[in-house]
């Protein structure tokens, strides 16, 4: 039974990493209809920035996480303006190719700069909390807290702030939003900034809890899309439940079956759900 709870907790931790990734993807995809394949690569690159900040300047990991978030936000806004905005009114396949090409650019630039070896961010303290026989490391707790804060913050922002309302308006009807005086270009940049900030946090935690390597971006974004579709596009509870479901299933699947099938579980669940409910678990448009 202890193993059960330990696996469950580990699943929740991985799940909250997936939630961070998927939530950013979800607002970008949901509001702007861009399948941002480079999202995971932005997370990976910012993770490397956090790694450099810690390993070369001996910075505290919180400082590193914040720098990673800021870096990702800037990259996200730049990508939106330089690469996605020129094809905003073109057929959807164009943004699809741009997204794939950006993923290739960022992943390969990372390989050139950082090399293809795995690195991980060493933190100075390594406290472990015990709840009965279930253990939780300090860093994993930080991930849970960060996810909680960012998800709640984003939810409140989207629901109550004026900008958040404008974003939801664009998501529902871009032209109508323009007519009532919303600057859709500005909204696009804000959406990319917010979404990428989430990726920045995820990237830093990837380095702290696991390992960073250039190809990680591609793996991460595919899981992110699986979570996003599983939960239903643009649904906050859907993304959270989808992320937790995939995280937990992966952990139990690896423990019960084999680790060579680890990456399968997410996609098998995804396909099963889509067969019965093509719009995802909580599928309805609009945040």
């Amino acid at each position: 039974m202890d193993i059960f709870f330990q696996l469950l907790l580990n699943g929740v931790v991985i799940g909250s990493y997936y939630i961070l990734i998927a939530l950013g993807l979800s607002i970008i995809f949901g509001v702007l209809d861009i399948p941002h394949f480079a999202h995971g690569s932005v997370a990976m690159f910012s993770g490397y920035i956090a790694y450099i900040v810690v390993s070369s300047y001996n910075a505290n990991i919180f400082v590193a996480i914040i720098i990673s978030i800021i870096f990702a936000t800037i990259i996200g806004v730049i990508l939106e303006i330089v690469a996605y905005r020129p094809v905003a009114n073109a057929p959807p396949i164009n943004s699809f190719i741009i997204a794939l090409a950006l993923m290739m650019v960022i992943d390969n630039v990372a390989t050139v700069i950082f090399g293809s070896n795995q690195v991980s961010i060493k933190s100075s303290s390594n406290q472990v909390f015990n709840f009965g026989s279930v253990t939780l490391s300090e860093q994993r707790l930080y991930l849970l807290l960060t996810t909680f804060i960012l998800v709640t913050g984003l939810y409140i922002f989207m629901k109550y702030s004026k900008t958040g309302k404008a974003i939801r308006a664009v998501s529902q009807n871009k032209e109508a939003a323009q007519i009532v005086g919303i600057n859709t270009n500005r909204i696009s940049s804000i959406v990319f900034g917010l979404g990428s900030a989430m990726a920045g946090a995820a990237g830093a935690f990837m380095g702290i809890l696991f390992a960073l390597y250039p190809a990680m971006g591609g793996h991460t974004v595919m899981k992110g899309f699986a979570v996003l579709i599983l939960g239903g596009l643009g649904s906050f509870p859907g993304t959270i439940i989808g992320g937790l479901l995939i995280g937990i299933t992966e952990n139990f699947g690896v423990a019960l079956l084999s680790s060579s099938y680890k990456d399968l579980f997410a996609f098998v669940i995804l396909i099963i759900v889509l067969v019965f409910k093509p719009s995802g678990l909580f599928g309805n448009r609009g945040l």
Partner: peptide, 13 residues
């Protein structure tokens, strides 16, 4: 885009 991602999942499987 959904179709693209579902077919991608099959390729991975």
């Amino acid at each position: 885009h959904y179709f693209a991602i579902v077919t991608m999942s099959f390729t991975m499987i």
